[in-house]
């Protein structure tokens, strides 16, 4: 059973994408924790730890990803956690490359079919064989 946290950090309230992903992952047989909009990096990381999730999906449409994502990674590191992170939102190719170098597993842009996200997460765990 794959347990995923779908979190939306920052100030934008556009949660349709996060909700669609949460629902799609649920229908793919995963247990999905959805925490709603305007979460701080601290809330996201503490929730991921308390819930002992296998993966975190972050939805960002505000443009603040280069501030928020590094902070989340930093907090996870402080907590000795190496939970894989997937990101979805409006993110330039340049920033996507930078984020991958930081350790983000995959970045999904607008128009990505939900099946691609599902395969991405499932595939990660098959290869990682955890």
């Amino acid at each position: 059973m794959i347990k995923v946290l779908i979190a939306k950090p920052g100030l934008d309230g556009h949660d349709r994408g996060a909700k669609i992903i949460a629902r799609a992952l649920r229908d793919a047989g995963m247990e999905v924790i959805y925490t709603g909009i305007r979460q701080t990096p601290d809330q996201i990381v503490q929730t991921a730890i308390d819930e002992d999730v296998d993966a975190i999906g972050i939805s960002i449409l505000s443009g603040a990803h280069m501030k928020l994502i590094p902070r989340i990674l930093e907090l996870l590191k402080e907590n000795n956690s190496n939970v894989p992170i997937f990101v979805g939102g409006i993110i330039s190719e340049e920033d996507a490359d930078k984020m991958k170098k930081m350790g983000i597993i995959e970045i999904y842009g607008p128009g990505t079919p939900t099946s691609v996200v599902i395969e991405g997460i499932k595939g990660y765990f098959e290869h990682a064989s955890v």
Partner: peptide, 30 residues
């Protein structure tokens, strides 16, 4: 609830309690 068809689940109770997610005295688990 878990889905009887896929086994998947959407755990959304936490949404109402997220302001306490970082409280040291509380531990919320779905």
């Amino acid at each position: 609830p878990s889905s009887p068809f896929t086994g998947g689940s959407l755990l959304g109770d936490r949404i109402r309690m997220q302001s306490h997610a970082t409280s040291k005295n509380f531990f919320i688990r779905s």
